[in-house]
Amino acid sequence: MATSTIERSKRKTKIQEALVGWGFVSIPMGLFFVLSIGIFFYAIYISTYNWGIMGPRGFLGIENYTKAIHDPIFLKAIRNSILYAALVVPLQTMAGLILALLVNSKIKGSRFFRSSFYFPSVASSAAITTLFIFLMAPEGLFNKILTFFGVDVPNLFNQGAWLSDSRTALFSVIGLNAWTTSGTMMLFYLANLQSIDGSYTEAAIMDGASRRQVFWYITMPLLKPAHFFVVTSGMIGALQLYDQAILAGGADGSPDYSLMTMVLYIYNACFRQFAFGYASAIGVILFIIIFSLTMFQKLIFGNDAWKAND
């Protein structure tokens, strides 16, 4: 009699807990299912239609996809996005690691240095890109500094027009973003560095390892979770380049499509050509690229780096 009452009340608590659990997640998960999961499948659906301002005008199957891979401007956008990611990711990773190592040592003013290194990554990309466009203008501060160091700017191959010459525009944006994002990457490395147990390095030094050996054989492998996180999130962010491109090059990614990125191309297909089916197909292609690169990196770094997130 007594046990069954206890069991009944235990079951009652269990059911109550489940109901509260569902209650707590119901609204967030409801929104999530519509605006994230549902929208994902809706995107694939739209991408198979000829979809204009007035809605769907006929089923196309994979025609939007074949159209995309034959479009020279889209191919240019892919090339730009990949070149951008291939340069920005190593630059921001290296800069982030070096900055983290610098400010991790016990030095005077490390808080100040940490804050000033991190600040560019919290300022808005609109503000910072606009500022950068001003600094990189032909008469701007950057060229003044080059002139000070003896560079003959007016006779440079691009006459110092860093953002309005199609040969240097993308590389200038790469420089800008390696600078702004390195602060974030520094923080990720810093968090990881501070979690490393000092006894490993001490033991290695006791055994006569040099500073260099300690760094390459002890510290670097222990930074694996940060390497994975920095490279993966850096790659995903880089492939989504939009703000800096539209600010510096306008919707066309000027000059000469040198700043046309995959996302800017989606924007154009949507709001200038009103080809929503086509734009959606490009979104799906972007997702496939990001998804396969993430899986590929997971494979390289192994499963334990992934698990470090749990």
Partner: peptide
């Protein structure tokens, strides 16, 4: 299952959501 769905959804880029969200 729900929690893993939430985690997995972090890989869906906002740019993929652009067209369907706009239409919705």
């Amino acid at each position: 299952v729900l929690f893993y769905l939430v985690l997995g959804s972090m890989m869906i880029p906002d740019q993929l959501r652009l067209v369907p969200i706009y239409q919705l």
